[in-house]
Amino acid sequence: MFDYQAATPHWVNRLSFLIRAEVQQRFKAAGHAITAEEWAMLMMLWAKAPQSMGQLAAMSLRDRTTVTRLVDSMVAKDLLRRTADPRDRRSVLVDLGPKGRALEAPLTAIVSDFIAQATKGLSPEEVAGANAVLKKMTANILGEDDALG
């Protein structure tokens, strides 16, 4: 019989669900109506903005339709804005809106506190090792020598 609890993907999936729920709850408690999906989109754009819909879909591992719906919702909340691509007038770029930019510091602080709690009792070497293993597993699944982000 397959022992799912001995399988790394079980723990990765479980941790992912816990992280999403906890981060979203902490955002709500701090007065920020931001979902885990919105948080992920904001992080990508804080790192590099603007991005095309295709780039956002590729980075988030979501299809373009899902990304478009998410961006639509975030534009309605004034978190993001769409701009014309100066290199291709048929394309649209997604950029941060003023509210999206303003949330970087408070949301990052909330997540930093959460990460500190989640990694309590782990050495920096253990955290780096866990990150390296997960990155390598990601690269293996993607068939790459190295995983991005």
Rank of each mutant, 00 (worst) to 15 (best):
M74H: 06
E22T: 06
A36G: 12
A84T: 15
E38L: 08
E22G: 02
L80C: 01
N140K: 12
M53W: 03
L42V: 05
R20H: 14
L18Q: 15
R87E: 13
V133Q: 07
A128L: 05
N131V: 15
V94G: 03
V71T: 03
K77V: 06
V71Q: 03
S16D: 13
P50S: 02
L107D: 01
I19K: 14
K136C: 07
K77P: 08
W39L: 10
D85P: 03
Q25V: 01
A30Y: 00
M74P: 07
A76W: 04
H32Y: 06
V67I: 06
Y4A: 15
A58N: 10
L122H: 04
E37I: 12
I141G: 07
D63E: 07
Y4F: 15
L96Q: 03
S52T: 06
R89M: 12
G31N: 00
G100N: 01
Q25C: 02
A116K: 08
G31R: 00
A30S: 01
I19R: 15
A76V: 06
R14Q: 14
K135M: 10
L103D: 01
R101F: 09
R64H: 06
N140E: 09
Q5M: 10
H10S: 14
K48H: 15
R87D: 13
S52H: 01
D85H: 02
L107N: 04
K77Q: 10
L80Q: 00
L93S: 01
A116C: 04
A116P: 04
A130P: 08
K48N: 14
F17D: 10
H10C: 14
R62T: 08
Q51F: 06
M137A: 12
L45K: 04
S60A: 13
L79T: 02
A105G: 08
N13T: 13
A105K: 14
E104F: 12
K135F: 07
I34Y: 04
K77M: 07
A33R: 11
Q55R: 15
P50H: 02
M44I: 10
H32M: 02
S112D: 11
M44R: 13
L96P: 05
R81P: 06
A105I: 11
R62A: 12
V67A: 03
L56M: 04
P124N: 01
L122N: 04
L70W: 08
N131H: 12
A132L: 05
R26F: 00
L142H: 03
P124W: 01
G97T: 05
M53Y: 11
L80N: 00
I34G: 02
Q51K: 13
V92E: 07
A49D: 14
A21R: 14
T35S: 15
A118I: 05
A132T: 03
Y4S: 13
I110E: 00
A47K: 13
Q24H: 07
P124R: 03
D95L: 05
